[in-house]
Design a protein around this nucleic acid. Structure first.
Length: 586
RNA sequence: GCCCCCGUAGCUCAGUGGACAGAGCAGGAGCCUUCUAAGCUCUUGGCCGGAGGUUCGAAUCCUCCCGGGGGCGCCA
């Protein structure tokens, strides 16, 4: 399924017969395309073991491979690099193999049961531009791991059980003290409709949060309300339910627009019933101990180069923070049989996860066999290099940013008179997808951990390395396939390439299995994003040079159509893994 | 103070210990009676923050320094 593995096997055998381990025959894509398509650097490290010089060893390998018809060129260069160029028939055959395969990924040795925890929005807090990172990167990673064959569950992990809820309760009680939710003696039914709309909720939260911060007595009230909520006070629970469902509805709209699909809408509150038994277990095991009225877990380890504060399991007021709910969540996931948990959460939370993961190990909640990993992401900055703010100093809302991107896309289309003959609804649909692709690719281009500069003007540009460029490539491919059908031509088997351009495109498409592996291994969708760009760039060069439908040589035309078919199939797969949706035409 | 991340072309960013460090934009020069020019070709531009070290080989690993960002007990 992977040409690199096949070539590595061949070259490995040559190394073996030269007397060193076959593992040294690892073949990689060449860093010097002028010297060969592939290279093997194994002779350099292997020479030491074989007590010979790299050039002598490499020479021997080159001689053994020299007569192999599968290579058109095998040469030695520099201190011991082996450069390889593969026969066109091998390339064509390899391309045809993945064209007809069910999956383009390498076969999986052992599927794992994996949780990808991303999104992490807080109830009552509207999603802002910063949320785009975890949403897009997390969703993309989830799709990649799933495509690789693992059993993956994506969980939004709502922040729905902490102090902000208490702050909201207190603020609402101040504004509407006569609502039944605040009467401890109230025994009737609570209203079915929420006391606040989503708009009111969005306005309520900043005020509630600010007042709790500024006025210590309000802060105390909020903490008390939180503890009472967590302790099951009926009126507060009813109110909490309203906040939660109102908020979730708004979140689902924006996540849905972005194509971010969570398998689970669990949250901190989901594991509430696990907390008391878990705390008791940790207490009786001596892992959790009293300190200043709180119950804490000392997670410092020998050899720590810094002071890591203990994890506060139960606050002195009896309430719980997200440390405790996160621990209980791990507890529940382990019970469900998940063996890997990935947290796509802002890098600034790294200390938090260190605490939680250590506590989970210490408390026996997660064994060594359970993989716990925080894959942190960077922030979204403005063009001035500082965190993005609107004119009034707030974070731009995610839904507004999405709308801006789509509006800009439409403006650019109008400026250039693009899609002018499409119906109004199709034009809007194209602009919608172009805007989304622009926004997402602007994010995904950057490495997960980097803080990137948010610049919609640049992202939505119709020139260069952008989302629109990728869509344009995919649409061109579609267009050829459509035109071929009209002319009664079918994509055939891919045979040997005959030009530099079709060769390069095939070689590119053969890289997919390794690129996917690497992107997953590094939890770095940007590596796949870069690859998507390379596919389109190679395709555009091929498109420019080789006129596919007018190719008179029937066999070659069939190869080229098959190649377009494969390129299209792979590109749309890659774009889907990047959460990017392609229009039918544009 | 301690810890984490970052510093690569004018700008925005890639870069799994391998050869001469790449892309896009911006600047310069070209290509549309041909499957969509939202494209393609050529070109200008770098002591990879600095100094040591490990290695056959370092932008990449280690140490120190300089500069920027972030985190550091009952918020998330």
């Amino acid at each position: 399924m992977s040409i690199l593995s096949e070539l590595s096997t061949i070259v490995g055998a040559a190394f073996e017969s030269a007397g060193v381990d076959a593992g040294y025959g690892q073949v990689v894509v060449s860093s010097r395309p002028d010297l060969g398509q592939f290279q093997c650097n194994g002779a350099l490290p292997a020479a030491k073991k074989a007590k010979t010089s790299p050039r002598v060893l490499a020479e021997e390998v080159v001689n053994r491979l020299g007569g192999d018809a599968r290579f058109t060129d095998v040469s030695l260069a520099g201190p011991g690099f082996i450069n390889l160029t593969v026969a066109p028939v091998i390339i064509g055959t390899a391309a045809e193999t993945i064209r007809v395969a069910d999956s383009m990924a390498k076969p999986l040795k052992k599927p794992e049961k994996v949780v990808v925890d991303y999104g992490g929005p807080n109830v009552a807090k509207e999603l802002h531009v910063g949320h785009i990172r975890t949403a897009i990167i997390g969703e993309s990673f989830k799709r990649m791991v799933r495509y690789a064959g693992h059993n993956v569950t994506g969980d939004v992990h709502l922040g729905d059980w902490g102090t902000p809820i208490g702050q909201l309760i207190v603020e609402l009680a101040r504004n509407h003290p006569d609502l039944p939710y605040f009467d401890p003696d109230y025994e009737g039914e609570y209203p079915k409709d929420p006391p606040v709309s989503v708009e009111e909720l969005n306005e309520l939260y900043p005020v509630a949060s600010r007042r709790a911060k500024e006025d210590p007595s309000v802060g105390n009230l909020a903490r008390l309300a939180t503890a009472e909520l967590q302790d099951g006070r009926q009126g507060y629970l009813a109110l909490w339910n309203h906040f939660r469902s109102t908020s979730i509805e708004a979140m689902q709209a924006i996540y849905g627009e972005l194509g971010v699909n969570f398998d689970r809408w669990h949250g901190e509150s989901t594991v509430h019933d696990r907390i008391v038994p878990m705390v008791e277990r940790l207490r009786s095991a001596g892992v959790a101990v009293e300190s200043d009225g709180a119950l804490i877990i000392d997670i410092a380890e020998e050899g720590d180069t810094r002071e890591i504060p203990p994890l506060i399991l139960v606050k002195s007021d009896g309430g719980y923070n997200y440390h405790t709910t996160d621990l209980a969540t791990i507890d529940g996931r382990v019970e469900e049989g998940f063996t890997s948990m990935f947290y796509f959460v802002d890098s600034r939370q790294s200390d938090h996860f260190e605490q939680v993961f250590r506590a989970a190990r210490l408390g026996g909640i997660a064994s060594r066999n359970t993989q716990l990993e925080h894959a942190g992401n960077g922030t979204v900055n403005g063009r001035d290099g500082r965190p993005l703010r609107t004119r009034d100093g707030n974070l731009p809302l995610l839904r507004e940013v999405v709308a801006d991107a789509q509006r800009l896309a439409l403006e650019r289309m109008d400026e250039r008179g693009l899609a002018a003959d499409y119906s109004e609804s199709e034009r809007r649909q194209v602009a919608r997808l172009v805007g989304l692709a622009a926004l997402k690719y602007g994010d995904l281009q950057n490495h997960r951990t980097s803080n990137y500069t948010f610049d919609l003007e640049r992202f939505t540009s119709f020139e260069g390395k952008t989302g629109p460029y990728l869509l344009y490539g995919a649409v061109r491919m579609k267009s050829i396939l459509r035109e071929a059908r009209i002319r009664g031509l079918d994509p055939g088997q891919i045979g040997p390439p005959q030009t530099d351009q079709d060769t390069n495109l095939m070689l590119r498409l053969l890289q997919f299995p390794e690129v996917l592996d690497r992107a997953i291994e590094h939890r770095a969708p940007n590596q796949l994003a870069e690859y998507a760009y390379e596919i389109v760039a190679d395709f555009n060069r091929f498109y420019e040079k080789c006129h596919i439908l007018d190719q008179p040589d029937e066999e070659l035309r069939s190869t080229w159509l098959g190649l377009v078919d494969l390129a299209h199939r792979q590109l749309t797969t890659v774009l889907d893994l990047l959460t990017i949706e392609t229009p039918g035409r544009m």
